[in-house]
Design a protein around this nucleic acid. Structure first.
Lengths: 108, 108
DNA sequence: CACACATATTAGTAAATACTAATATGATAA
DNA sequence: TTATCATATTAGTATTTACTAATATGTGTG
């Protein structure tokens, strides 16, 4: 019952991986196929150092995996479950969308 | 093709809701049934102001809904999709778990 | 009405996270 | 073996986010 703690921290780490705009852009970029760091940088119009750090973060979170080939590093989603989770966000988004969009107003 | 942007921001807002330890504790606390703020504070051993702010955040993200009854506010998950998403985190966690747990070491 | 309770809001500060520029590493090719 | 390209790492700073204490609001009760 207190083994909960370790799992919980790992879960937070996992979720944290998804909670940044740049990281989500990277994930959407490699959702269908593996890409090299250069490709990711180009497609997301990101800064090399920044993208590299976010890739390290995503790898550390267990969301993506890297494959080395010569001087290139190919990154891809870890597995289908991750892909499913990404799709799930979109599903949940759909029924949340109308309400969330206007909730800055609700804040007052 | 550029309608993507608004959706994306909303998606980030949604995901952000899940990305904090206190907020996830709240969500697990009300996952099965609605609870009052006091109950949530007690069960999570949280600070009143802090919990209140996180509840506002979760509501703003479209993750939970509040129901007023007299002097009490009852909060619960917005719908089944949110519950599914929470379960999904656990599913993904399972196959990520072993690797992520030891990835502090991978960081070097 | 005055008081107690439940919750929300505000303001200030602390802590975590993201970003940038500079530099390092490691692989290939001339 | 030097030059170049791809990527990683580091250090410093900026930005965002979380937290706490104090105060406000709103509701029921004696």
């Amino acid at each position: 019952m207190k083994q909960h703690t370790a799992n919980f921290d790992t879960k937070m780490k996992l979720i944290h991986g998804f909670s940044n705009k740049t990281r989500m852009q990277i994930l959407e970029c490699i959702k269908e196929e593996e890409k090299t760091v250069s490709q990711i940088i180009e497609e997301t119009k990101g800064n090399q150092s920044n993208i590299s750090q976010h890739l390290a973060c995503l790898k550390g979170c267990g969301i993506i995996v890297g494959r080395n080939e010569g001087k290139y590093m190919y990154y891809s989603l870890r597995n289908q479950h991750i892909r499913d989770l990404l799709s799930m966000f979109d599903v949940v988004l759909e029924d949340v969308e109308n309400d969330v969009a206007c909730c800055d107003r609700h804040m007052d």
